[in-house]
Amino acid sequence: MVSRQTTAGQPIAYAASAPKYSTRIASVVRSPLYQHTLGAAVESRIGRVLLLTGVPLLWLVMMHLGPIYQMLKISLMSHYPVQQGVDWHYTLANYAIFFQESIYFTPLIKSFVFATAATAATLIVVYPVAYYVAKVVRPEGRSRALLLLLVPFWAGELIRTFSVIMLLANRGGLNVLLREIGWIDRPIPMLYTSFSLGFGLVYLICLYMLLPLYSAIEKIPVQYMDAAADLGAGPFTRFLRIILPLSKDGIVSGCSLVFLTCIGVFATPMLLGGPNTVLFPETISGFFHGASNKWPVGAAFALIMLVTALFTAAIFMRLVGGKKRSAF
């Protein structure tokens, strides 16, 4: 299936006259252990192919596909873990449960609403920033301007979530500041609401929007804008007709990335959300922890979420229609 050509002529001929290496690799290469194992393997075509493909393909199939496959399998089973003497069969009942109870599908809808809103908010907030760094800042200063924005993201997900609590709590930074100014008498309850959750989500994920947008906007040649200006286009027209369409790639990948991350965020809703903001990941998690050990239902729900999330992202990509991006 796979071939790798040696352009080096006949490697076997070289093996006879031992190559001269000046480093430690020489002793390894000359040792009988190497010559009879790896050394011998790379001399034959099959050996090379196996060496190149074996481990990566095994890993990819086992660890990248395996878990999803097992999740799919268990989601179709009536019982798991299967105990001795218990009859189990394949069934779709686990999926049916989702549509029967509103306590199950409301969180999914909420998750989607939150993720969509957070994605839109992030796009609107981050776009000017990405534009500023990519086009307004002088080229020499770009790295520094970008680096400054990246610093907060080396704090982990949890620490950033925690720091949002410091800002929004009843006696947190914002409320205390507002009271000092005298705009409010009593603290506005911001924490443990939809607002704090949305704020936290945007705070958490704006980097995923910034980087794709930045690299897309940076690629737009300045001459295009100059040309448009010469032809009489005002700033607004230039933005709408040139910058926006040309940065579409960045918008598409940024939004998809942010959306998929938002959907899967787990700790943030638990720390920043309130009783009204139970999102789907928390619902799913309930099936894996605690007394109700219903793995098949949890697996089915996780798959429902995965499929709807990827489907939404795919539709979005199709609608906005970035040009087909290939890896090569």
């Binding site: 999740m71 899967g264 787990f266 799913i284 998690s285 996780a302 979420m305 995965l306």
Partner: peptide
């Protein structure tokens, strides 16, 4: 999404 990866 991270959550689903973790569960699977």
């Amino acid at each position: 999404p991270g959550m689903i990866s973790a569960i699977s």
